[in-house]
Design a protein around this nucleic acid. Structure first.
Length: 425
RNA sequence: GGAGGGAUGGCAGAGCGGCCGAUUGCGGAGGUCUUGAAAACCUCUGGGCGAGAGCCCCGCGGGUUCGAAUCCCGCUCCCUCCGCCA
């Protein structure tokens, strides 16, 4: 969420920034008006409270002195003030609630460096690595759902029987491949990231803090009976890990990694890209996340991106890096790079990672702050995170890329310690 | 699931209707002393809103009262015992 004070201190800059994400100027004006009314009402409320407090102290003194009659008079006056305070206070709460609700729905301001654009089509391809369209043979032009079915390592029919479509079931070497990828990736981040195994069901607060709610409630699975949400990404529990806390600057950046299942209803995407593993309701992903000072944030962002990229390179996959334009940026995001791998069988670029910088937008929702080493001042941290990586589409790209003319598949050598045999079929 | 106990500042731990945003100890910062250090002593040391005056925060949300950290109700979390169980 944005700092309301910016509405007062730099309304024009704020409007200009939000306009790049398509937010109308009226919304900022609406914020300004609610903020003005909120402060006006809280001032009235504070004045009334101050008078009640003063009177109450006098009552105490008079009663001790035995001046019962005078005390009674003050009590009556205070009772009256109290009633007025209650009314003003209720109004103040209503306005504060409206302000917060609006604030929770207004997106983050994009970073100055983020490219302008209206939507997906305007994202900028920053670089393409390891891709030569002529280097793929006919044997690699088989989609992973066919390869997986032929080798008995992907059983979409059984998954659908148990849970419905878009709930994949991997088996044998296919299941082991997912486990290998997870173990390998966690180990690759172990040099700088603390491994966390967070809960997969979280409270509403955690979903709000990460920016999933209130806007994207339809995309998340909700367990009504217990009022818990199935996490759509480890970003949710990891962001709330430090909620309500004040960290020491010396401890920053805090770097965390976690492998978790991720659950997505994909409510708005029914029927689109649903073949095979292109879009699924449940998948495993390794996430890397950091809390940093504003000064550290750009370097941390670059490091997260470099880590996700190096994993793709080590897996021998062709990939490209997209600088996400303002029109396609997520609600909480100031800057975002997406990584897409090339899957020759589907002949598609598949998004497998999103490396994001949220400035203090999430930290403000989650109330994560740090104490500056120099002057001891307290301010919100910056949060950053990236997938490194999300496995289903990697699984698809590996199986398609590694397919040989005889129909068997060769998997990357780096996974040998977990796979044993890197040849499938 | 049942019974009981608890939640106060970085930590420990008082306070149980007014003089309490809160005694004290530890920890932390600075200073005096010292060749230097230790010890001793002194001072300071939570967060939020607000231009300020001031207001809010003693797990969270309500209530009682002129006045609530203190009384009442609900919720959450932690601990102990019993039950169940991967």
């Amino acid at each position: 969420m944005l700092d309301v004070r910016r509405v007062r201190t730099e309304p024009d800059a704020l409007k200009a920034g939000l306009a790049r994400k398509g937010v109308a100027g009226e919304e900022v004006d609406q914020l300004a008006e609610l903020d003005r009314r909120r402060r006006e009402l809280s001032e009235q409320r504070d004045d009334l409270r101050a008078r009640v407090k003063t009177l109450s102290k006098e009552v105490g003194g008079l009663r001790r002195a035995g001046e019962v009659e005078q005390a009674e008079a003050l009590m009556a006056e205070s009772r009256d003030l109290g009633a007025r305070e209650k009314a003003v206070s209720a109004d103040a709460d209503v306005v504060a609630g409206e302000l917060r609700e609006l604030l929770l729905r207004i997106p983050n301001v994009p970073a100055a460096e983020a490219p302008d654009g209206a939507g997906e089509a305007d994202n900028v391809v920053v670089r393409v690595e390891g891709f030569d369209p002529d280097a793929y043979g006919e044997h690699q032009r088989v989609p992973h759902w066919d390869v997986g079915a032929a080798l008995g390592i992907l059983d979409l029919g059984r998954g659908a029987k148990i849970s419905g479509s878009m709930f994949p079931l991997y088996r044998g070497a296919g299941a082991r491949l997912v486990r290998a990828l997870t173990s390998w990736a966690l180990d690759r981040h172990a040099d700088a990231f603390e491994e966390i195994r967070p809960p997969s069901l979280v409270r509403t607060d955690a979903m709000v803090a990460a920016g999933q709610l209130p806007k994207f409630a339809d995309d998340a699975y909700h367990l009504e009976r217990d009022d818990l949400w199935a996490i759509p990404t480890a970003e949710v529990p990891l962001t709330s890990l430090a909620s309500g806390e004040i960290l020491a600057e010396a401890d920053l950046p805090v770097r965390l990694t976690a492998a978790t299942p991720c659950f997505r209803r994909e409510a708005g995407a029914a029927g689109r890209d649903t073949r095979g593993l292109l879009r699924v309701h449940e998948f495993d992903k390794v996430e890397i996340l950091a809390y940093a000072t504003p000064e550290q944030a750009p370097a941390v962002h670059a490091d997260l991106l470099a880590r996700a990229e190096s994993l793709l390179a080590e897996l021998g996959l062709a990939y490209r890096v997209l600088d996400i334009c303002t029109g396609d940026l997520g609600q909480s995001h100031a800057r975002q790079f997406d990584l897409e791998v090339y899957a020759p069988g589907c002949d598609l670029w598949l998004e497998v990672s999103s490396v994001s910088w949220f400035t203090d937008y999430q930290a403000r929702r989650a109330d994560i702050r740090y104490r500056r080493a120099g002057d001891g001042g307290v301010e919100h941290v910056h949060t950053l995170n990236g997938s490194a990586l999300a496995w289903p589409r990697i699984w698809a790209a590996l199986v398609e890329t590694g397919r040989r003319p005889d129909g068997t598949v060769v998997l990357p050598e780096v996974l040998a310690p977990w796979l044993g045999d890197t040849t499938v079929g």
